Amino acid sequence: MIVVYGVREQLNPIKTKLSEVIHGCVVAVLGMPEGKRAHRFIPLELENFFYPTDRSEAYTVIEINMMLGRTVETKKALIKALYERISAELFIANADIEITIKEQPAHCWGFRGITGDEAADLGYQLNV
């Protein structure tokens, strides 16, 4: 699951394209299936979104929640792909993009009535 935070007036006009870009990177780098898009956009009023003074109102935070298993190289490749595509396709400066990967063990995930460690049919590999 991916959660994106930003200033409402900046985030709302681009969220569909940003979702496409993020998902394209996740598919290309992590090997996620096309149909596994799980994005949440949290547009905030300017007075509710505090960000560093050397950033603009385009400041966007992307939190990527995933099960443990990917290598350091894979996670770095995902972050770099996101920076490259977001800046090229949405014209957001790299300084205005913050990306955090949060990993949890599979047993901490629940979906389809089971925990992640019980799922035998994810349709993608965790150890990439």
Rank of each mutant, 00 (worst) to 15 (best):
N12P: 04
T115E: 01
D54W: 09
G35Q: 07
R55M: 13
V27N: 12
P13F: 09
V4R: 03
I92E: 02
G116V: 04
L11Y: 10
E63W: 06
L68I: 08
G24Q: 12
L126I: 05
C108S: 08
H107N: 08
R37E: 14
L44N: 10
T74N: 04
A93D: 13
P43C: 02
T16G: 14
T71D: 06
V26L: 01
I14Q: 04
Y51R: 15
G110C: 05
E57V: 15
N94A: 13
H39A: 08
Y59E: 01
I14F: 08
N94H: 09
R40K: 13
L30V: 02
T53V: 13
P13S: 11
G116H: 01
R55Q: 14
H107Y: 11
T74I: 09
M67F: 00
L18R: 10
E57N: 15
S56I: 12
L68G: 10
I42S: 14
I64V: 11
R85Q: 10
T100I: 14
E118W: 07
G116C: 05
E34P: 15
I2Y: 14
A28T: 11
Q10W: 08
P43N: 08
T74C: 12
I2R: 12
H107D: 12
K80W: 13
A77T: 02
L126M: 08
E89D: 12
G113R: 02
I42Q: 02
F91C: 11
A38M: 09
C25S: 07
R40Q: 13
N94G: 09
G35I: 15
A77D: 02
D121A: 03
H107L: 06
E20K: 15
K17W: 13
E98V: 12
G110Y: 06
D117M: 03
K75I: 00
V7I: 13
N12M: 09
A81W: 00
N12E: 11
L68C: 12
L18H: 05
A106T: 10
K76T: 12
Q125W: 09
E84M: 15
L11P: 05
K36F: 11
E98L: 15
E57I: 15
I114M: 09
H23M: 14
V72R: 03
G35N: 14
P105F: 06
L82V: 11
A77W: 00
V4H: 06
C25T: 04
T53S: 14
K17P: 04
I22E: 01
E47T: 12
M66G: 00
P13T: 07
E63Q: 14
E89M: 07
I97E: 00
I101D: 02
S56V: 05
L82K: 10
V61I: 13
G123Y: 01
K76F: 08
F41M: 13
T74L: 06
D121S: 05
H23F: 12
E98C: 13
F111D: 08
G123N: 06
I22S: 00
E9M: 11
T100P: 08
F50V: 15
S19F: 10
L46P: 07
R8E: 11
